[in-house]
């Protein structure tokens, strides 16, 4: 696994070197999960831009960030963070939810 990690990071290094200017320009947004709630539950992001969303899970249990509209799905382990790349989005609203607690963990991304 360590070898895999190394070769993977090497590949990533090559990729990030070629895509460095674009990566630097990516705006970052942060969302927290606390008590199975998204905080903030409404996030306004620029439209037609790729963004980097960092989800911090402040709960001790795992959560899965999921959005059918955004086509994203990622497990965020308890007390950890996860990086999700989104977009570029057309202007509009994109609901997301925590698949493990969908009744309370709900939120919406508004692209403007």
């Amino acid at each position: 696994m360590a070898a895999l990690y190394r070769s993977g990071s090497l590949l990533l290094l090559v990729l990030s070197l070629t895509a460095l200017p674009a990566a630097a320009a990516k705006p970052e947004f942060k969302i927290e999960i606390r008590n199975h709630l998204f905080e903030p539950s409404e996030l306004v992001v620029p439209a037609n831009t790729k963004i980097k969303l960092i989800v911090y899970n402040r709960d001790s249990t795992a959560e899965e960030f999921e959005s059918y509209e955004l086509n994203r799905e990622k497990v965020v382990m308890g007390n950890r963070k996860a990086v999700i790349f989104i977009g570029p989005l057309k202007p509009g609203t994109y609901p997301f939810f925590g698949e493990f607690h969908p009744n309370t963990a709900q939120g919406i991304i508004i692209a403007e």
Binding site: G8, R80, K81, A82, V83
Partner: peptide, 13 residues
């Protein structure tokens, strides 16, 4: 999963 998630700058999963 927690360990795997941290690989490749957070996109290991």
């Amino acid at each position: 999963t927690a360990i795997v998630s941290d690989w490749f700058d957070g996109v290991g999963q």
